[in-house]
Nucleic acid binder design. Structure first.
Lengths: 214, 214
DNA sequence: GTCTATACTACGATAGAC
DNA sequence: GTCTATCGTAGTATAGAC
């Protein structure tokens, strides 16, 4: 039992170090840009030497990969807490609020967002494991979209896939513009996040009256 | 006259070298990502040494700056050629076609677009000179938007600034999603560029019936 | 004037001592 | 587990050949 306790303690300590590395990396990325992350700067802020980081991550890309996965998992979590993926609430409310929560999270986590939504790092491609929560969230969003249609908020013959793609473009556009042009503005009063209600109305109106025909 | 001729010839030669550097840089950025540009790779492809590039550009950032400016100027040019900024055509047609030309140019010039619309390079901020065509295009777009309203295609009391911001978010979103998720698809059959007509209809419909109130 | 040669600093990464 | 030492390559800058 003593050995197991020591192992737990050691593993917990290790986990704490991993968390610290990731937190510091996010801070560096927020200040210097996602591609401006350097292992030297992370090590410097932690008071260790760059090679020591290799005891926790297999290089810089592994760090990006962990941040990519954690970003999607964190987004998943806030959406679940907002009740956006549950079956209880009215689909329309869930859709509207879920979208707002998504955009808020994105602008409040610019470094994660840039890594997740754009691909600013030359050689980096997320692993299948890191991609998993993104795929799950995609599937959950499509399910909710179907419920939105079945509840009569969208035209019965709407092209769900096309409508979903359109929605991602609109929401992604608001996030993109806000982060590129005014990253320091808060969600509530952002130059672009402020038009999110308009954008939602636009999308809902279009798919309520105008079906996918074109 | 002979001296002037020699000077012209020398300057022309120099200009050709500058163009070649920029072309090669775009090729590298297209393959490796905007932040993946290295002077060594540019020099290697041109058959020269990295320090030779300093005779034409004051380092990598100056190269980015020139590409930023040329990108906006090129976009300006194709929009003018499409008649999107002239006074002749119907404002609605000009707006629709101008938007399509913009999106097409963006997806067909991914390296330029990433540099112009996102900010993927850590230390780089475009100079005022490089920004000029972007500002001009912004102003021209707003003028056209006012003409669109005055021609009765938008509600008379529409908030022009807000409508313009919304438009940039929508169009930027389509470009963003297309370039991030399926950069190799052509404009005509792109997963996201294909919904551009829907997005345009949405935006026009919203501002025709629903004024800025909210 | 334009290039090559060379040097300096910083980065990511690995090997091996303690 | 962390360190020092080291490698290869990048961006940058200067000196000097032609």
């Amino acid at each position: 039992m003593a050995a197991a306790g020591a192992l737990d303690r050691r593993q917990r300590r290790r986990q704490e170090t991993i968390e610290e590395i990731l937190d510091v990396a996010v801070a560096v990325m927020t200040e210097q840009g996602v591609a401006g992350l350097t292992l030297g700067e992370v090590a410097r802020r932690m008071g260790i030497r760059p090679p020591s980081l290799y005891g926790y991550f297999d290089g810089k890309h592994a760090l990006y990969d962990a941040l990519f996965e954690r970003g999607w998992r964190a987004l998943q979590r806030v959406l679940e807490q907002a009740g956006a993926t549950g079956d209880g609430a009215d689909p329309l409310t869930a859709w509207r609020e879920g979208t707002a929560v998504l955009v808020r999270w994105a602008v409040e986590h610019p470094a994660h967002s840039a890594l997740m939504f754009w691909r600013p790092v030359p050689g980096f491609t997320p692993s299948a494991r890191a991609y998993e929560p993104a795929v799950e969230l995609d599937a959950a969003s499509r399910v909710l979209l179907v419920r939105l249609r079945d509840a009569g908020h969208l035209a019965a013959d709407v092209d769900v896939d096309r409508a979903y793609r359109t929605w991602t473009a609109l929401v992604g556009g608001v996030i993109s513009q806000q982060l590129s042009n005014a990253p320091d503005e808060p969600f509530e009063s952002g130059t672009f996040t402020a038009v999110l209600p308009d954008v939602m109305d636009m999308w809902l109106g279009h798919h309520r009256s105008n079906p996918s025909a074109r």
